[in-house]
Nucleic acid binder design. Structure first.
Lengths: 212, 212
DNA sequence: GAGCGATTTTATGTATACAATGATTGCGGA
DNA sequence: TCCGCAATCATTGTATACATAAAATCGCTC
């Protein structure tokens, strides 16, 4: 594996996990030394993070981890709605019905009792997203969605959703999967719209009430 | 201006203009020598082009200018529809009505007689896009659209549209601008849908008939 | 003592040298 | 003659040295 890839993967994870919080300055020499690579591959990693929108330059000379406020989250969800509604519609038109019928089934069965179930939920959602990408068969759309999801990881972290919302989210995903399996593009798109509306509402509520 | 920026700008222009056609191999030493920069800033430029999707690696060792076929154009327009419909809707909700009323007026007046009028048309469309971006006030959406437009430059080049289509396109843009000025999000979105449908149809027709 | 300017320092931007990897070509054997 | 192996060559990946520019600090002047 290339040193630049390792640096990128490490920095990405550290930014998404909050180890490198918004506003943290990323000096080249400092980070290169910390990650055990030279400045050249580190700069490549920073360039990719900059293209992702995860870092931005504060002044001409200092690069920082970019912040996310409620306004950013609203903007992000506007793009997300546009892309995911399209993806759902296209998946309903082209996707493999059996795949999504199976997913709907699994979503119906997933329990949400213990703490470990959270990870199971997120793993299932990740498989759902992957199935969507595979069904849509559109690299431009997939890469645009990948960028949105990159930012979403951080959003989820700073707005820890409650268990009740998790159960609702499962039900909403189940409807989307069922709509795709049933080849109903309009329902798939509108169910996605509803899901994203609820998700955004929940996140913004969580932010305004307890910014932890 | 930084050397890496010059290299990026030059390569971008050369790819969009067709001087570097799809499939052209981009050796680092060769391009660095040609552009008069060292390999380090050149690599940064190639990284950005790769993130844009304008270059891709053919094998593990050789980087080439990526190609665009009819399938890619369809995929690109699926994303474009998702993003531009959203943008039109949001602009109708938030945008400055006077700005778009003025644009609608200019679009009504623009003549399409001579050859020079083509450039006037494209300049006007560019201002329209800029006004849309300004009205939407969403960096995520704007940057996603910028990426799509980067690819569209190449698409337009290989599908030279006829004068008749240009006149139709002006009329379609005029309706979109008018809808935004009238604060009618649904009309703005649907007019955008219609416009993109017609544009795509025209491009694909032009490709199948005379791939020049 | 405060403000402005020059100097020093520290950061980034660029070039080049070095390392490693993969492809290609030439040689030997079957 | 063809296949396989090896050696060389070319190209990318990484490290480091150098150039350049911005920022901070120290000193000088008002």
């Amino acid at each position: 594996m290339r040193a630049s890839d390792r640096a990128y993967a490490t920095l990405l994870d550290e930014i998404q996990s909050g180890f490198l919080p918004p506003g943290a300055v990323l000096g080249e020499v400092e980070q290169a030394a910390r990650l055990g690579v030279s400045r050249t591959p580190l700069r490549e990693a920073l360039g990719r993070l900059s293209a992702d929108g995860l870092v931005a330059q504060q002044s001409a000379r200092v690069l920082v981890v970019s912040g996310i406020d409620a306004g950013d989250i609203r903007e992000l969800f506007e793009v997300r709605r546009a892309l995911e509604e399209s993806a759902a519609r296209l998946a309903a038109e082209r996707g493999d019905a059996a795949t999504f019928a199976t997913l709907a089934d699994e979503l119906a069965r997933v329990g949400l009792g213990g703490a470990g179930e959270r990870d199971a939920y997120y793993a299932l959602i990740a498989r759902f997203d992957a199935a969507l990408d595979a069904a849509v068969v559109n690299d431009y759309l997939t890469s645009a969605l990948r960028n949105v999801r990159t930012h979403l990881v951080r959003v989820r972290r700073l707005a820890r959703d409650n268990p009740g919302r998790l159960a609702e989210s499962v039900a909403e995903h189940r409807l989307i999967a069922a709509a795709i399996a049933a080849r109903d593009p309009e329902l798939a798109a509108h169910a996605t719209h509803v899901h994203l509306h609820n998700a955004l509402t929940n996140i913004l509520d969580s932010l305004s009430k307890g910014p932890s």
